[in-house]
Simulated assay, not measured.
Amino acid sequence: MTAFGSVFMPEMALSEFNGEHWSEPKLVASDSISLHPGAHVLHYSSTCFEGLKAFRHGDGSVKIFRMNANIARFAQSSHMLALPEIDSAQTEQMITMTVRRFADQAPEVPGSLYIRPTHIGTEPAIGKAAGPSATSVQYVLLSPVGDYFSGGADTTLRLLLEEDGIRCAPHMGRIKSGGNYASALLPTLTAKKEHKVDQILFCPGGDVQETGAANFLLIDGDTLITKSLDSSFLHGITRDSILTLARDLGMTVEERSLSVEELLERSQKPQCEAALSGTAAVLTPVGTLVHKGKEYSVGSGKAGPLTSGLRKALNDIQWGRAEDKHGWLVSV
C-alpha cells in the first residue's frame, strides 16, 4: 500500500519573493526547486505549510474544502515566523490553478487531492540566526490520497498520555511549522516502540492538549469537550468544522481546559467517545488511553456512533452529498 502523501502530481504552482515583490505564479515541475546550501530554511527552520483537500463530487466537479480558512492560517504562520508576507489572493490563485490543472485526476471519494501550500525562507545567510530571510519561495504541491490511518473510519487508536513532555514551544503551537512536528517525532517513535501506541497525547502538567499531528476531542453523551484555543496548540480547521457541525446537531460544545484526571474519569463511562481531528485524520476514533502503565478503554473501546455521525456529516458536505450551509466549498 502506498504511504499517505508519498505520491505527487508532476507539476506544482510556484512564486518567488525577491525581497520586494512576488513573481507571477507559474506551474513548474514538482522537483524543480534549487536551494543554496546556506538557505535560511535549512539552518533556521523558516518554513510553514498548510494541508487542505479537494474532493470529486458525483457530478464530476471538484471542490476545495475551507480554502479561505487555510490561507488565513498560512498567512498567520508566515507572519509569526517573520517570513515575507504572503499575498493571500495570489496564494488562492496558486491553489486553484494547481487543482484545476489536475482536476481530472482527482480520486473518487473517499479519496481526495491533498493540497500542500508551503512557504520557505531562501536567503543564503547563515549569519541570520536572529534575523528573518529577506527572500522566500511559495509553492503548492498536490498528492492524491486515501485514508491517513490504514483502517479508515473503523480504526481505533491507542494514545499515550504524556504529562511531562510537550509537543513544541508553547508560544509556537498555533504555527503550522515543520519544526513543531519534528520536535514531537522522536518522543512519538519512542512511545510507539515502548508502549505499542499510535500517538502521544501531550498533556503538559496534566493539561490535555493535542497529539503530534491532530487535535483531540472528547464526547460524553451529547457534550463535546476540547481545549479552548490558545497559542500552545494548532487551531485546527477540521476541529473548527467538527465543532460547528456538533452545534448544528444540537450538541453542547465546551471549549475549555480538560485535565488528565477528568479525561480518565469520563473515559470509563459506557457512552464516552474520543477522537482525533485533522485534515488527514478527518475524525478518527480513539479506543484506548495508556497512562502510567495502565490501559483505559474509552467507552466500549470501539468507534462510537457520535464520532461516526460527525465524521459522516463532515464527509457528506465535503463529498457534495449534503447542503453546504456554511459556504465551505470552493469550485475550481
Score class of each variant (00 low, 15 high):
1 M>Q: 10
1 M>W: 14
2 T>C: 15
5 G>N: 07
6 S>C: 10
6 S>I: 08
8 F>C: 15
15 S>A: 13
17 F>I: 03
18 N>A: 10
18 N>Y: 05
20 E>L: 04
25 P>Y: 07
28 V>I: 15
31 D>F: 09
37 P>M: 10
37 P>N: 05
42 L>M: 05
44 Y>N: 04
48 C>T: 07
51 G>H: 14
51 G>P: 04
52 L>P: 10
60 G>W: 14
60 G>V: 04
62 V>K: 07
62 V>F: 01
63 K>Y: 03
64 I>P: 02
64 I>H: 07
65 F>R: 03
69 A>G: 13
77 S>E: 08
79 H>P: 00
89 A>P: 06
92 E>T: 12
97 M>F: 08
97 M>Y: 09
98 T>A: 14
105 Q>C: 04
107 P>C: 00
123 E>G: 01
123 E>K: 13
125 A>S: 09
128 K>V: 12
130 A>P: 05
136 S>M: 07
136 S>W: 01
143 S>M: 11
144 P>W: 11
154 D>P: 15
154 D>K: 15
156 T>P: 13
161 L>K: 10
171 H>F: 06
171 H>C: 12
172 M>W: 14
177 S>M: 15
180 N>R: 07
184 A>R: 14
185 L>Y: 12
187 P>F: 00
190 T>I: 12
191 A>F: 05
193 K>P: 03
199 Q>H: 15
207 D>C: 12
212 G>M: 08
231 S>A: 15
234 L>Q: 14
234 L>G: 13
236 G>N: 10
242 I>P: 12
245 L>S: 10
245 L>G: 03
247 R>F: 04
249 L>D: 07
253 V>W: 08
255 E>F: 08
274 A>D: 04
277 S>Q: 01
289 L>G: 02
291 H>P: 01
294 K>E: 15
297 S>R: 15
307 T>A: 14
315 N>S: 08
320 G>K: 02
327 G>R: 04
329 L>P: 00
332 V>G: 06
